[in-house]
Amino acid sequence: MTKAPEKLDRLVMEVRRGALTLAVLLALREPHYGYSLRKGLLAKGLEIDEGTLYPLLRRLEDQGLLRSEWQQEDGRKRRFYQIDAGGEIALAEMQSEWQSLNDVIGQLAEKD
């Protein structure tokens, strides 16, 4: 059995990792709890599993990019996340870098 698919999976995950962070920060311009965030991202075509999302949310909060608070909704306490001022600064930088990279990759991908 060849290891090519495993190596390919790792490469795809490397590309997704940064994109997921950017997508989560963009989505959290509005408050969401974990499940509503997953559902909203999936509705836009971006699947993210719980084992990836919740550690990402904790890491972004630890880095000072998000804030969270417990709120009551539909009779349940849910932890809502939202981007904060530090996250807005990081988001602007990440969007700029994403656009620059996208432009270069688009040029490289063009066929003459």
Rank of each mutant, 00 (worst) to 15 (best):
T21E: 10
S36W: 01
M1H: 14
L22P: 07
R59G: 05
L25A: 05
V24W: 00
W70D: 15
L53W: 05
L91T: 11
R67N: 01
K7E: 11
Q82T: 07
R17P: 09
L11V: 06
Y81C: 00
G64F: 08
P55Y: 00
W70I: 15
R17H: 08
W70F: 11
M1I: 10
L11T: 09
L56G: 09
K39F: 03
E61W: 00
S96V: 08
E50R: 12
L57F: 00
Y35N: 01
D62R: 06
I48R: 02
R10G: 11
M1R: 14
L101G: 15
S96N: 15
Q107T: 05
R67M: 04
V15F: 14
V12A: 13
Q71A: 06
E47T: 06
R58C: 06
G18R: 11
T21C: 06
L20S: 08
E30Y: 08
E6C: 09
S36T: 05
Y35G: 00
D9V: 09
A23E: 04
V12H: 14
L26T: 02
K77P: 03
S96A: 12
K44W: 04
Q71R: 06
L56W: 01
L60C: 04
G64L: 11
L91K: 09
A19V: 12
Q71C: 07
D74E: 13
G45F: 02
R16Y: 06
L28A: 03
R76Y: 12
T52Q: 14
K111C: 11
A90G: 07
A85C: 07
I83F: 03
K39I: 03
R38S: 03
G18V: 07
R67F: 04
